[in-house]
């Protein structure tokens, strides 16, 4: 092997080594970066029961806006840690809790007591009192939360913001 050939082999080796090490360092440095980017998908959010009202606060047929803290709020979330739901007392022992998010594009729906309808301010979606679509663009009924009565307290199980999919 000539001196020139040895040099070329050496050079080829170092080129491969430099590229390989660069790729390795980029890969290793990239792990925490990708992890930060995908953090919301990697962390599991628990679903917990939150007290939203006392049983005595609700007359049968009443619909009220209730608020509760999200399942796993960050210390710096401040008031953004809250969520809301529309809660209706159907009978002595049954309640229905509707998400406040319109199924069209997520805007906050309002309960209009006189009209007995839920109305969305954004694009005019309207729902009947059972949450089914009355008119406008919403593709499906209002999403419901799970509700239970525990020791004279009404509790709602926290859930993700309902995202309408195709």
């Amino acid at each position: 092997m000539t001196e020139n050939q040895t040099d070329n082999t050496r050079r080829a080796f170092f080129v491969k080594l430099s590229l390989g090490l660069s790729a390795l360092s980029a890969f290793v440095a990239g792990i925490p970066v990708i992890s930060a980017l995908l953090a919301p998908l990697l962390e599991k959010t628990p679903e917990v029961w939150r007290k939203v009202a006392d049983l005595d606060d609700f007359a049968i047929g009443a619909v009220k806006l209730v608020t509760f803290e999200n399942a796993d709020p960050e210390a710096w979330a401040g008031i953004t840690a809250s969520s809301a739901a529309w809660l209706r007392r159907e009978s002595e022992s049954t309640f229905t809790a509707f998400s406040v998010n319109c199924t069209h594009l997520g805007c906050p729906v309002r309960w209009e007591e006189g009209a007995q309808l839920f109305m969305c301010p954004c694009h005019g979606g309207v729902y009947y009192k059972d949450g089914t679509v009355a008119s406008g663009p919403p593709p499906k009924a209002l999403v419901q939360y799970r509700v239970r009565i525990n020791k004279q307290q009404i509790q709602i199980q926290t859930a993700p913001v309902p995202i309408t999919t195709l």
Binding site: L38, P40, L41, A71, P73, E74, S83
Partner: peptide, 11 residues
């Protein structure tokens, strides 16, 4: 979920 940084609006 990725856009909101979680299941709900928050920190």
């Amino acid at each position: 979920r990725l856009l909101m940084g979680g299941n709900t609006v928050g920190g």
